[in-house]
Nucleic acid binder design. Sequence first.
DNA 1: TTGTATGCGTTATCAA
DNA 2: TTGATAACGCATACAA
Lengths: 366, 366
Amino acid sequence: MEPRKRPGRTPAQGGRTARPRQAEVARLAGVSQATVSLVLSPKPDGKGRLISEETRRRVLEAARSLGYVPDPAARRLAAARNNLLGVFSFTATFPTDVQHSYYPFLVGVEREAAALGYDLVLFTGSSTGGAGAAGPDALSRVRLADGCLFIGRHTPRAELKRLVEDGFPVVHLGRREELEGVAWVGADYVEATRGVVAHLAELRHRRIVLVREDDDAPASADRQRGFLEGLEAAGLASGPAAVFRSADPQRELTPERLRAWADEGVTAFVAEETDTGAAWRGLLSAVRAAGLDCPGDVSLALLGSPPSDLASEPVPTGFDIPRPQLGAAAVRLLAALVAGEEEAREPLVGCAFRPGPTTGPPRART
Amino acid sequence: MEPRKRPGRTPAQGGRTARPRQAEVARLAGVSQATVSLVLSPKPDGKGRLISEETRRRVLEAARSLGYVPDPAARRLAAARNNLLGVFSFTATFPTDVQHSYYPFLVGVEREAAALGYDLVLFTGSSTGGAGAAGPDALSRVRLADGCLFIGRHTPRAELKRLVEDGFPVVHLGRREELEGVAWVGADYVEATRGVVAHLAELRHRRIVLVREDDDAPASADRQRGFLEGLEAAGLASGPAAVFRSADPQRELTPERLRAWADEGVTAFVAEETDTGAAWRGLLSAVRAAGLDCPGDVSLALLGSPPSDLASEPVPTGFDIPRPQLGAAAVRLLAALVAGEEEAREPLVGCAFRPGPTTGPPRART
DNA sequence: TTGTATGCGTTATCAA
DNA sequence: TTGATAACGCATACAA
């Protein structure tokens, strides 16, 4: 039986012109398809040109005139590379609720990817139940890319581990030490928080309280750790009493509570930054409701950046998470993994201390 | 010559264990590779099961025990499509300056793409070297996807046309009627603006002035057209005098000018929305500087949404551009083109009228 | 109902 | 220096 023309092909392929293939470039240039491949995929092997300058020119010209672009799927199948980096977030990458946006990270991710010569594939998460929905192989689609960046707290561990075990380059944006073998890049919340505490201690605050949400995320734990370490370093009383942990700070952080603390000699509060900003919001409103002056009566600091809807307020003392830099660092690491380099870089990115008008020396006690 | 073991394979493929293939699943289940494929990729064709329940079970069991996951590259290669939609913006997709961001569109783009089973490839036109260098064939890279969405005012016409001529599915986000053959999806500024004028006319305003920037973008032209049509429909005097066009409204829109208009009987102003929001800003500050009360002395309307940094101000009367919906509509259209369907849908998306506190009946003239 | 054969577009090997 | 050719893993038309 002789070969069919195009078996395995759905009949209604669409009436449009197919994308140009290497074979067509070859015909136009009067060479073989393999030659086209050689010309078009420069070997970094350092091997000198095996193709004559003349042929080379003709092939390039033909490719250009045809608008040829290599098929990423075929490339990967042939065990080559795509120049495609994946970005996968379990929740929507562009949520309607801008509060949870990964936008600032993406700024850095895009810039760095472009600089390194990669395009980005945004794998639409399972949020909408669309592309990859919830199936166990939802994450599998990312294998189309050369490597993939994961963002968000809720990355399914098993799937991620599977990818890593298969040798697929993966980088997680955000600390993920529990996931063994998963490379990650994160902000150094511990150090940054220590810095904020040190700042308050220098101002002569003696009792400081951390307001945090009831969440087990590494980001929360890190801040608490940095907080306690900071207290110790300053020779201040630490202990669980210094941490106020609440599932709903905006409710449970009452003005009475605040006054009680003040009476006990607490002169400063630090709140963690989270998606919702609940801790900080709760703290702010409680202070106001209690009629306390800031920074006169109490100093306030935010362990992160203020929510965007509070943009009209003065920017509080705290630190800035360098999200674009984080994104860029993650891409650099991922690119290194893709290139087969051993992972050997500092995964922590420092946060810059941000002075602000919400902290000052405590009022002398009477 | 007998077949090599794994030719075309780079020798140092990595020491990692290869993932299971359909062939291995087949061996374990005692069936052929094709059968495995049949079982594992359910056809939505509605065709009943061609595979016996027994075989089916065995295959699934074998696949599970081996931890089989399909290779997306192979799958896409065989299917002759990527399930990838490109998104191309001439400026960075994620600019540092959030003002100019396409974020709201992307929200809808992502959601709809996910719903339709597509992933997104982000192309950056302005990228600094790297992937998308600035070459004339920069746009050519988008051919890697099954189709591409273009966003922004500055899409190079020639390149776009070339893509379309080659039968590559292209959709432009924003009206682009000059570019023949280029499918587009846009907001119906004409109709929306007419609505705003009608609203003012109903309030009994008799003289209304449009403040616009000196830009030839379709978006500006459409608003002007809708404005003039709205005036006519209400039986009001139109003509060029009703349009104030300025390259720098924030400078040229002086309080004196405003007073002069008021003296002439102008009781309402509408300003177009642009990237910078210059028209609206200029109008607002001039009204304030002139000491005019709004909506007492003058009614103001904004043909679009207010800039985010004016979030603290009351939201003016006007209309909302449904950006997420626009993005979604564009993706739907693009998907239809990719699927080979003839383009046959309404490219205009309506804008919702937004009542606000900045308009009211004009003060009775003395 | 299942197996066989073939090709999707690319890279890489080997012979010419 | 270039041209055949064999896979990569999967999906399908067709035969059995």
